[in-house]
Every structure is written in structure tokens, then in C-alpha cells.
């Protein structure tokens, strides 16, 4: 029974903090102990020093800006196209039926398959990065919007029709509120995928950005810098996840799924 009492006393954030500190300490001790050669995994303080050196240079911040810029632009294009096409296809039974097979075929095509084409057409210009990001993120959004439109309450739809709502106000007042939680799910998935593809493009194609910096650090043997940049991409990933969840909460504040989470 004592364990139950103790569980109550340790708050979850303290445990999480403890776990994270242990993780950081291990990153320091394991290389120092010689368990893993330090040329494979340098101790944490060396990675930290490399990170310190990197962030004091303009080059690093330009790379971060390039990565985030490509991510944001690609994500916006995918969101816009996915929402518009999703509403269009979803509102028409005919379109939905005739496009289903094509969507199901195109969606699982890995966007990295487009890398050679993107390189030939755009080289290392931002368009090649955007091509990969948009292709990958678009399907995530489109599929969710289609789910959302399908979920519209038939009674609400018929009511709107009886009241002779025009197409626009039907979308605005009936379809959109129903689809919004799904749109946000698509947004969340697409944001993560877009970041993965942005980094991939920079690594493989050589578009300017953090991925390219990592590739350069590797080929010049700057192992500490490489690890430092990998950790930075992780931090960016966490920030993207947290930011997207904040937006989702904000946008859906009226929605029961979010309201319910607030303790009464």
C-alpha cells in the first residue's frame, strides 16, 4: 500500500524530469566509460560545446530559417489544396466515387520516389523541397477532410437543405464545423510529415537548411556538430508538435472533444 501513497506524492512532471536527466547523464557517461567509442558518440558536454559554437554563427540561424521556411510554405500549400479539394470532392457523391480509386493509388506512393525528378527539374532550389513536402503532406490533409465531410450529420444536412441554404452557407455552417476536428488532425499529421520531408530533401538533395548542415558536418568529420544538429532537429520537432497541439486546442476550443478535457 505504501507504493500507492508514494505514487500520489510524486507528480508526473517530476518523474518525467528525472527520466530526462537520466537520459542526458547517460549521453555523458556512456561515451566517457568507453562503452561506445567517443568517435561514434561524443560525450554530451562536447556536443554542447559544438552546439554553443554553432548557435553563435549566423550560418546556423539561416539554416534553421531555411528549414522552417520550406516547412511552413509547403505545409500551407498542402493545407490549402487539401482543404479546398477535400471539400469539393467530399460534397459530391459522384466525384467521391470516381476519385476514390485514384486517391487510394496515389496516396501511398512514397514522396521520396519524386526525389530524382525534383532534382532534375529544380536542382537545389526551394521548389524541389516544396515538391516533396507538398506531395507528402497533401494526402494527409485530403484524407482527413474527406472523412470529416462524410461525418456530417444527415439531419443537419437535410435541415440546411430544407431552409434552402446556398452551397456556400451549407459549407460554412454545416460541413465546415463538422469537418474542422478532422482538418486539425490532418494538420497535425501533415505538420510532422512536412518536417520529415523538409529535412530529407536537405539531406539527400542538398537544399540549404539543417539537413544539409548535418550532411556537411558528417562528411567533414565534425561528429560533435553533427550530433548537436541532430538534437536541434529533435527540439524543432518537439516545438512543432507542441505548437500544432496548441493551435488545435485554440481552434477547437468550442468543440466537445477539447472542452471535455478541461477538469470541471
Amino acid at each position: 500500500m505504501t507504493t500507492v501513497a508514494r505514487e500520489r506524492r510524486t507528480p508526473s512532471w517530476a518523474r518525467g524530469l528525472f527520466g530526462f536527466v537520466v537520459f542526458l547523464v547517460m549521453l555523458e557517461i556512456v561515451p566517457l566509460s568507453g562503452l561506445v567509442p567517443s568517435r561514434y558518440l561524443p560525450p554530451l558536454h562536447e556536443i554542447g560545446e559544438a552546439l554553443g559554437a554553432a548557435v553563435s554563427e549566423a550560418e546556423f540561424w539561416i539554416a534553421v530559417g531555411d528549414t522552417l521556411g520550406g516547412w511552413g510554405l509547403g505545409l500551407s500549400i498542402a493545407l490549402g489544396a487539401g482543404i479546398v479539394l477535400g471539400l469539393l470532392i467530399g460534397s459530391s457523391g459522384l466525384l467521391l466515387r470516381f476519385t476514390a480509386s485514384t486517391i487510394e493509388f496515389l496516396r501511398p506512393i512514397p514522396s521520396v520516389a519524386l526525389i530524382p525528378l525534383a532534382v532534375l527539374m529544380f536542382g537545389t532550389e526551394i521548389e524541389s523541397k516544396l515538391m516533396l513536402i507538398v506531395y507528402a503532406a497533401f494526402w494527409q490533409v485530403l484524407i482527413q477532410v474527406l472523412y470529416g465531410v462524410r461525418d456530417v450529420d444527415p439531419v443537419a444536412r437535410d435541415t440546411a437543405r430544407s431552409f434552402r441554404f446556398g452551397a456556400w452557407s451549407r459549407i460554412r455552417h454545416v460541413v465546415w464545423p463538422t469537418a474542422l476536428p478532422y482538418v486539425m488532425t490532418g494538420f497535425r499529421l501533415a505538420a510532422t510529415v512536412a518536417l520529415v520531408l523538409a529535412i530529407t530533401a536537405e539531406l539527400v538533395i542538398g537544399n540549404p537548411g539543417l539537413g544539409k548542415q548535418i550532411a556537411t558536418a558528417r562528411s567533414s568529420g565534425a561528429v560533435e556538430t553533427m550530433y548537436a544538429l541532430v538534437l536541434v532537429t529533435g527540439v524543432i520537432g518537439v516545438l512543432v508538435n507542441v505548437g500544432v497541439r496548441l493551435v488545435e486546442r485554440r481552434v477547437l476550443a468550442w468543440h466537445p472533444s477539447v472542452r471535455r478535457e478541461v477538469p470541471a
Binding site: L195, V196, G211, T233
Partner: peptide
């Protein structure tokens, strides 16, 4: 207890875009 302890580390691990592991693992 275990879940609350390791969750932040796992969330961080997931947030790292997997392609950056290619150069790291090439090294190892």
C-alpha cells in the same frame, strides 16, 4: 511510474525526423 518517467524522452525520440539518423548510423 515507468511511463511517466520515460515519456518525455520517448516524445523527444519521436520528434527527431528519422532521416537525420542516416548520417548518424552511417558513422556507427
Amino acid at each position: 511510474a515507468l511511463r511517466e518517467t520515460v515519456e518525455p524522452v520517448l516524445e523527444f525520440g519521436r520528434a527527431i525526423p528519422p532521416p537525420v539518423l542516416v548520417p548518424v548510423l552511417m558513422l556507427i
